[in-house]
Amino acid sequence: MISVETRQLTKKYKEKTAVDKLDLTVGEGEFFALLGVNGAGKTTTVRMLSCLSKPTSGECFIMGHSCSAEQAKVKRIAAISPQDTAVAEKLTVRENLEMICGIYGFDKAKKSSKTAEMITLFGLGEYENNAAKTLSGGWKRKLSIAMALITEPKVLFLDEPTLGLDVLARRELWEVIRGLKGRITIILTTHYMEEAEQLSDRIAIMINGKLAALGTLSELESMTGETGLENVFVSVAERGRKEAAE
């Protein structure tokens, strides 16, 4: 089943076209990485898919529901962990999780069981009664992802989840994210090639708002004649830059 679909999805800001006629399909349970240099259109795409931004033209669908016409349904089944840490700073870890349960209308029993489940899954037990503002960057990111996952989404958007984290914290977070593979559809945007290489089933590379390459790592390697995602990415990005200059 198709989990995420975009049809000629376009977003324009005055003269600038941030996303240009993007056609994508992501299967259910797939781990899909969206790569691109700064300003390539990754975050704008994720914002449109999570109903945070309206497309200028084209359409996008989550589990068959239109992100424009069926926002309420889409918002129930999709969740986002934004680029910046999106937690309530003065609330404790537990209170942050319980707040999200309340916002999604969970009853008392479900709120309690889901909160306990997330605290265990993300290893947050030691900090559950600590205010979010006292957590380190890595723990805040874990909490931020837990707050997205607690809503039982069918599609989870992770917008640069490890940005600004040190190597150890990043590796630790990868392990958590890896544990989610196959359970739900995950769309990951990242600048870290290693992250996409290790975690993703398929990879899309966006250049200037357009889809420049799409496939598994081995497919992309054969397509470009390069080895490793970083070389593939550089090859696709340079080709895109040349085409734009012509």
């Binding site: 934004p82 916002i103 999604y104 997205a148």
Partner: peptide
């Protein structure tokens, strides 16, 4: 924080 909530129901 509001971005997360804007994406909620």
């Amino acid at each position: 924080f509001l971005t997360r909530l804007y994406a909620s129901p």
